[in-house]
Design a protein around this nucleic acid. Structure first.
Lengths: 196, 196
DNA sequence: TCCTCTGGTCAACAGTTGTTGGCATACTGC
DNA sequence: GCAGTATGCCAACAACTGTTGACCAGAGGA
């Protein structure tokens, strides 16, 4: 009895997260994960039942976004970008979701539900209209996921190289406009109003 | 001799594009592609040599972006968004690249090179500084790829449901600011200047 | 007519995958 | 001491993968 079962389990989980994040679902083989963890493949099955359930365990996530009501209205955009970057750099979970969500419908579905339960409420704090809140949250997601994609997954050199402050300075205002900007004003006279 | 070899080849290619776009590289098996095309798997190998070369043939792409000098300076953003949406809806190539680029380093590399050769020049038309052009092109990419991701791949309901004009109205100004906005002014007094 | 060339079918290969069951080993409680 | 249990290793499984080569059918020129 070298390790406790809990220790083995978390070893496997850590290795799995790394592999899933780096290679995606199919190419992260149970054997490779087990080898990384220094554990027999059969133990993976014993502890997690199947590869699919191991995957599910590997990508549990809570965005832990800042409460929109605790930050000044004019800084929601940059606060969100900050929060997302931290979250993204903190562990590999979001990378796993993004990488595998592109090819696995069930993971995409999961991302959609995360989006609905965690980002839509933020947008809803700034508008009474539920459908508009969804739209605004969707736009904000597109920009945030796009940054994550280019910076952490595709690794576009300039996006990867930009400092965090620089990124926040550029992208924050975009999110700000999407979330609390005045759409009507935008439409009327060209965008100008997300500082509101 | 039922079909010409060219006809078979393009049948296979069409089926391959669909499968790669829907399932990604690994789960789009040669057998499945061949079955879709109504052709024996061995013919796929005969015509394309290997699965990898079939994949390469399936995702040749030319963005055909508008020449930035032919559109009014104030409309570059919306013109680009329009162009990208058309390109994206036109065929499955970009979907293949995005879906598989998330898990395959070589495809990601290819996306990076497409980015450098096709988007950076657009940004460079508005600034003398090469490194700033890269940065601006990177930011624009992040927003454009993010929209594509949410609309065509992850299918976030609100982003998928938005009309094209609506999307252009929201996202166009963002791209405009990234490409031709005044960064110094942004930094000094809050963003306000991408109409320039 | 025969021969050849082209497009197509079929069966099989070697390797890898997720998954399973049996067997050894060490620790724990009696 | 012993039995029971939890942990780990090993070999094997069936299924599936990309890929190969042998063989067949029919068209077209000699």
């Amino acid at each position: 009895m070298r390790r406790s079962s809990a220790a083995s389990k978390s070893l496997i989980l850590a290795a799995a997260r790394e592999r899933f994040a780096a290679d995606g679902y199919e190419r992260a083989t149970v054997r490779a994960i087990a080898a990384d963890a220094g554990i027999d493949p059969s133990m993976v099955m014993r502890y997690f039942g199947s590869k699919e359930r191991l995957f599910a365990a590997a990508c549990e996530v809570d965005l832990a976004l800042p409460d929109p009501l605790t930050v000044p209205r004019g800084e929601v955009g940059s606060a969100l970008v900050e929060a997302f970057l931290s979250r993204w750099e903190g562990d590999e979970t979001l990378q796993i979701l993004l990488r595998t969500g592109c090819t696995h419908a069930s993971v995409a579905e999961r991302m959609r539900s995360i989006f609905v339960t965690q980002l839509v409420p933020v947008a809803a704090a700034f508008t009474g209209d539920a459908s508009e809140a969804e739209k605004r949250a969707g736009l904000a997601s597109s920009q945030i996921l796009g940054v994550a994609l280019c910076r952490f997954v595709l690794e576009f050199p300039p996006v990867k190289a930009m400092s965090r402050q620089e990124l926040v300075a550029w992208v924050g205002p975009t999110i700000q406009r999407y979330l609390v900007g005045d759409a009507a004003l935008d439409a009327r006279c060209g965008v100008r109003s997300w500082e509101a």
